[in-house]
Amino acid sequence: MGKQQYLVEVFISLKEVVNDPQGLAIRDGLHNLGFDEVDGVRAGKYLQVSVNAGSPEQAQQRTAEMCDTLLANTVIEEYRITVADRATS
């Protein structure tokens, strides 16, 4: 079965209910600079993972496993995965 390379994007952020000190500090910094329209900021991590897989679904599933075991701390973080595009290698 042929495998192809997929560019998988992973967005990791603290769960909605978890306190996000970094987001709060950035929000306040923006307020101080006059960006009053800012209601809230959540900070997180963005990763690009090049994955060899048989299908986009498989790339998605394997990356989810990576998130559960290493990339995200699922005690406090949640993640979102998009199989954005085929990577040009």
Binding site: K15, V18, P21, A25
Partner: peptide, 8 residues
Amino acid sequence: VIQVGNPF
């Protein structure tokens, strides 16, 4: 929910 500390 786990507490996240904010030392700042």
